[in-house]
């Protein structure tokens, strides 16, 4: 637990991360042991390992952190969280960094925000996600060249009845939209 008196000794960015991540107060206990960076299935692709990110957060290097590719390498597999000897909610911190990075327009060089946006737009419209619509739209707007590579695979999927051409729609889309709009209006994390 952190107490009022020590909170003042954290960098502004560290306070921000702790406040906007469920369980984020545990971050103060980081030993810089690197079990997160060593465990990550995509760790080799990261500009900075999660451990290094935590050090940068403590040093208030907000811009560098939010512009890095680290959180965009995260696939939310929770292996780092499982292994962290200090029970730091690392995956949740990655979500927080993703949110902040998108909100501030710093998530360049990754297609993840576009994928996320396309996905949730579909959900907001229909109430259900829709793999074909997601894939076609996402690839058409973001990776048109990939559509050719995907073609063969898509065909195999289609012939096996695994691709639906039209979205399923829930009955009460308006109710879902009202909930989403209200949530957006209240805003913010915990």
């Amino acid at each position: 637990m952190i107490t009022e008196t020590t909170e003042g000794h954290r960098s502004a960015f560290m306070r921000e991360v702790m406040a906007e991540t469920p369980g984020g107060e545990q971050l103060v206990h980081c030993l810089q042991c690197g079990s997160c960076g060593g465990s990550c299935p995509n760790g080799a692709d990261m500009e900075f390992t999660p451990r290094a990110i935590f050090s940068m957060i403590a040093a208030n290097r907000r811009h560098e952190v939010l512009a890095s590719n680290t959180m965009w390498c995260c696939v939310s597999c929770y292996l780092c969280t499982t292994r962290c000897p200090q029970e730091i909610p690392i995956t949740e911190i990655m979500y927080m960094l993703k949110r902040t990075s998108i909100a501030e327009g710093m998530a360049t060089g990754t297609d993840a925000p576009a994928l996320a946006r396309t996905f949730t737009d579909l959900v907001e419209k229909h109430g259900r996600s829709f793999e074909f619509g997601l894939a076609s739209r996402y690839y058409f707007f973001n990776k048109p060249m990939s559509l050719f590579k995907m073609g063969g695979m898509g065909f195999s999927m289609f012939t096996r009845g695994r691709i639906q051409l039209l979205p399923n729609k829930i009955r009460q889309v308006d109710q879902l939209q009202a909930i989403i709009n209200k949530a957006k209006e209240i805003g913010g994390a915990s």
């Binding site: 042991c33 690197g34 079990s35 997160c36 960076g37 060593g38 900075f48 390992t49 290094a52």
Partner: peptide, 8 residues
């Protein structure tokens, strides 16, 4: 992670 190199 070799934390002094920052690499897995």
């Amino acid at each position: 992670e070799d934390t002094l190199l920052g690499r897995q």
